[in-house]
Amino acid sequence: MKKTIISFIAIIILFFGVVYFSVFTGSIDVSMSELIHGLVSGTNADVQVIKDLRFPRIIIATFAGASLSVAGVLLQAVLRNPLAEPGIIGVSAGAGFMGMLMVAIFPTLFFFTPLFAFIGGAIAFALVYSFSWKSGLNPLRMILVGVAVNAIFTSLSQTFNYRGSYTSSLVTEVTTSTLAMKKWSEVEIIVTYGTLGLLVAFLVFSWCNYLVLEDKTAKSLGFNVNLARFIVSAIAVLLTSIATATAGMFIFVGLIIPHIGRLLVGTDHKKLIPFSAILGAVLILLSDTLGRLIIAPNEIPASIIMALIGGPFLIFLLRKSDRIYGN
């Protein structure tokens, strides 16, 4: 219990520290007093730039990291597989492709992009789940099928991009995984859908605790496994779709964060879900901030930094695959 409290306090302090670092670090340098005065008066040009450029990407990075991390927690509970992650098993790619397609066809429905992305993510997840099932879920088979589904949707997205049209260039801007030049309209989207998704995810924490048990054990306790698995999966796909449609595709976030969370706060999803949300927000926000500072004035997309971190982590987990749920 003491370790859990200390972990929560530490991660909350770290989150606000990273937010402060992100706000006040960059080509424009202002003090705290100048920032507050400029936000109130609206007369400081530097503060207005920070408000319109840094604030949106900070908020989007925060919600994207929280959404993807919690989606990873939920998927790992549903599939009883610690290697399950929206980016690896193709959910992010499916969501990204459908969001891209719908923005191109119905640009006036931009606010509903996460809902279109949800359809793509749900299709990808259904494909992975159905093709992986053979007298039960095999963790390795699921990962291999997920890689194949991810490749298919990624190829479709790239084919769409290389049409060379003006529309496709606009779509690429919308779905890119760099957080530069994000707008307040996109903040409105991810805050609206993201808050709803994260709240619903926390409400099903007890279901997740049952789902990590064997099906026979959970059913013997009177728990409706199939209904819970469907609803929790839908929430995970929704969270992934929200983040992908607004911030772009980030892989490995939903893989790394839940494992760190279990080490620090345990396996109870009542604690694991909120902790993962905060830690995921810290990771994406820090990656984005470092990405715009390392080779300034140019930027390294946060998704690239995440891939550099997550790749070795996945190899480590595969080496330890004998400890996978359900084996």
Rank of each mutant, 00 (worst) to 15 (best):
residue 61 A to M: 04
residue 62 T to K: 00
residue 62 T to W: 03
residue 62 T to S: 14
residue 62 T to R: 01
residue 63 F to M: 15
residue 64 A to V: 13
residue 64 A to C: 15
residue 65 G to M: 11
residue 65 G to R: 03
residue 66 A to N: 04
residue 66 A to Y: 01
residue 66 A to Q: 02
residue 67 S to Q: 01
residue 67 S to V: 02
residue 67 S to D: 10
residue 68 L to Y: 06
residue 68 L to K: 02
residue 68 L to P: 02
residue 68 L to D: 07
residue 69 S to W: 02
residue 69 S to N: 07
residue 70 V to N: 08
residue 70 V to A: 08
residue 70 V to T: 10
residue 70 V to G: 08
residue 71 A to H: 00
residue 71 A to T: 01
residue 71 A to P: 01
residue 72 G to K: 03
residue 72 G to N: 10
residue 72 G to D: 06
residue 72 G to C: 11
residue 73 V to P: 00
residue 73 V to N: 11
residue 74 L to K: 01
residue 75 L to Y: 09
residue 76 Q to I: 03
residue 76 Q to C: 06
residue 77 A to C: 07
residue 77 A to M: 00
residue 78 V to G: 01
residue 79 L to T: 14
residue 79 L to K: 04
residue 79 L to R: 03
residue 79 L to S: 14
residue 81 N to W: 05
residue 81 N to Y: 05
residue 81 N to G: 08
residue 82 P to C: 07
residue 83 L to Q: 00
residue 83 L to M: 12
residue 83 L to Y: 03
residue 84 A to H: 06
residue 85 E to D: 14
residue 86 P to M: 13
residue 87 G to W: 06
residue 87 G to Q: 09
residue 87 G to I: 11
residue 87 G to F: 10
residue 88 I to C: 09
residue 89 I to F: 11
residue 89 I to S: 11
residue 89 I to C: 13
residue 90 G to C: 10
residue 91 V to F: 01
residue 92 S to P: 08
residue 92 S to D: 11
residue 92 S to K: 07
residue 93 A to T: 05
residue 93 A to Y: 10
residue 95 A to R: 03
residue 95 A to C: 11
residue 95 A to H: 02
residue 95 A to P: 04
residue 96 G to E: 02
residue 96 G to N: 05
residue 97 F to S: 04
residue 97 F to M: 12
residue 98 M to F: 15
residue 98 M to I: 15
residue 98 M to N: 10
residue 98 M to Q: 06
residue 98 M to K: 02
residue 99 G to L: 12
residue 99 G to K: 06
residue 100 M to N: 07
residue 101 L to M: 15
residue 102 M to C: 15
residue 102 M to Y: 07
residue 102 M to L: 14
residue 103 V to H: 10
residue 103 V to F: 15
residue 104 A to N: 09
residue 104 A to L: 15
residue 104 A to W: 10
residue 104 A to M: 15
residue 104 A to P: 02
residue 104 A to T: 12
residue 105 I to Q: 01
residue 105 I to P: 00
residue 105 I to C: 04
residue 106 F to H: 09
residue 106 F to K: 10
residue 106 F to L: 15
residue 106 F to W: 12
residue 106 F to N: 07
residue 107 P to D: 04
residue 107 P to K: 02
residue 107 P to G: 06
residue 107 P to M: 06
residue 108 T to C: 00
residue 108 T to V: 12
residue 108 T to K: 08
residue 108 T to E: 14
residue 109 L to K: 02
residue 111 F to Q: 09
residue 111 F to W: 13
residue 111 F to C: 13
residue 111 F to M: 14
residue 112 F to L: 15
residue 112 F to T: 13
residue 113 T to N: 15
residue 113 T to M: 15
residue 113 T to K: 13
residue 114 P to L: 14
residue 114 P to K: 12
residue 114 P to F: 12
residue 116 F to I: 12
residue 116 F to Q: 09
residue 117 A to H: 02
residue 117 A to I: 05
residue 117 A to L: 09
residue 117 A to W: 00
residue 117 A to N: 04
residue 118 F to Q: 03
